[in-house]
Design a protein around this nucleic acid. Sequence first.
DNA 1: CACCTAACTTAATCATAGT
DNA 2: ACTATGATTAAGTTAGGTG
Length: 518
Amino acid sequence: MASSSSSSTSGGPIARGSRRRRLVLKLSQKDTLQALFQQNPYPGIATRERLARELGIAESRVQVWFQNQRRRRLKQSRSPSANMRQDGEGAPGEARRKRTAISPSQTRILVQAFTRDRFPGIAAREELARQTGIPEPRIQIWFQNRRARHPQQSARGPGNVRARGPGGASATTAPAPEDRRAPPAVHSTSPPLGPSQTQESMPPLAAAAPLGAPTFWVPGTASGVCVGQPLMFFVIQPSPMALQPSEKPPPPPQVAVPWAACSPADTAPWQPGPGAILPPLQPETHIRRRPESPVAEGTAPLLEPQPHPPSLPRSTSLLDELLAATGILETQAPSPEPGADAGVHPALPDPPSFLDELLEATGLGSSQAPSPGAAADAGAHPALPGTPSFLGQLLEATDIAASQAPSLGPYADAGAHLALPGSPSLQDELLAVTCIPGSPGPSLGSSPVIPGYHPALPGSPSLLEEIMAASSIQDTPWSSPRAAADEEGVEAILEAPLREEDYQALLDMLPGSPGPRA
DNA sequence: CACCTAACTTAATCATAGT
DNA sequence: ACTATGATTAAGTTAGGTG
């Protein structure tokens, strides 16, 4: 079974798209992960997200780390007989991430992409994420499942199913050797900055953390901005107050209430022993990332012109990044083509412009958009009576995302679930949306300020501390937040790549203008 | 250059939404 | 119950960062 893959692999599927930039975990981050791993090698989504926030990395990265760690552990002790999954087993209550609902229109886009390339690289995935509004990690999973269930689908080419050879998909044509890395020159892609990295998971704001809750520093402004991938939205952060646990009844019971509402008392379900402490949390939010690189996989030129929109010479300077993040660059990019997005759509049978999709999904069109203030409220999700606010709908439909540190931050993810209107999770969505991104990420070496962690909050025990206390692991003198602080500091900015047209259209739809694009 | 390990893949399986 | 499909896991591979 498995063996098969290896050999052919060389052709590597991965080769082309280029992987996501390798994350280098800091010591303190490793310590935290390690500590938690000891307690529960099979953390559920809530724990992973929480951890992700604490560490300032994407939830998906946390998941991968646990996978690798389990493997490592296993390998080391050749005989795992003892423990494998039993331990974590009983985690009733939190386990998996909620199933992500993918709408038909989103599926369409994905399928299209799939036919073009079954092994999209990070850049392509991110691009898809932007287009669909689905978090990149979910897209990655989607492709995995798709490959497994649709061997060769499009291939009409009789004959072979070369499936796995990763190259199978596109490689066929090419000799391969070269594609292995990224395209040669054209966009330098990621190397320089961490381009693609954006945040996936958001660091929720820090408002008031309940006890153990980790606090995050909130980017300067009180208000966070959430940007939707395709659309740019500015959401006003519902002030922390809104989240106040005390009474704010966020109606949605099912919604995971941000830590604020949850009592820390609930501890993690899974756990065994020593008292786990992690409170359940989970505000889910998602953030989308920026249009980063273009890239493309050009491997399948056959199907399409596949315009690599990517060609945008994205400069790697921080400034550029920032601009890009804020959308400034993007929109006014001189480039003849807006490129990025356009690139992908070409293939779509009918250009499902995002806007169209949006409308379709939301089915609304007339509501008057709430003023910003209203938006804010929406954020607080006052109570979804059933009529989702325009903003809500939009957000939901677009799966808004908030992104954070544009430049370098490699983390983030979101637990997003998209849902079509009507779906019960609307509230969830809104909630998620309202969570503003908070913390910044790590990775910039230059800012001495703003630690990703709770640097100095004396009163709030960090997750690690809790764990340590509980498990008595104490190898790391982690008490000093200092370390972590080293680098982080980016402020959160949001980015929002959105096509001019869409943006425009959106504007049109907004309150005052009834007619969506002409 | 070797080693460690993040990132990625397949295959199997569990879980859930929709019928 | 059945089907479709998203999520998770194990096991193996690839490749980036470091010493």
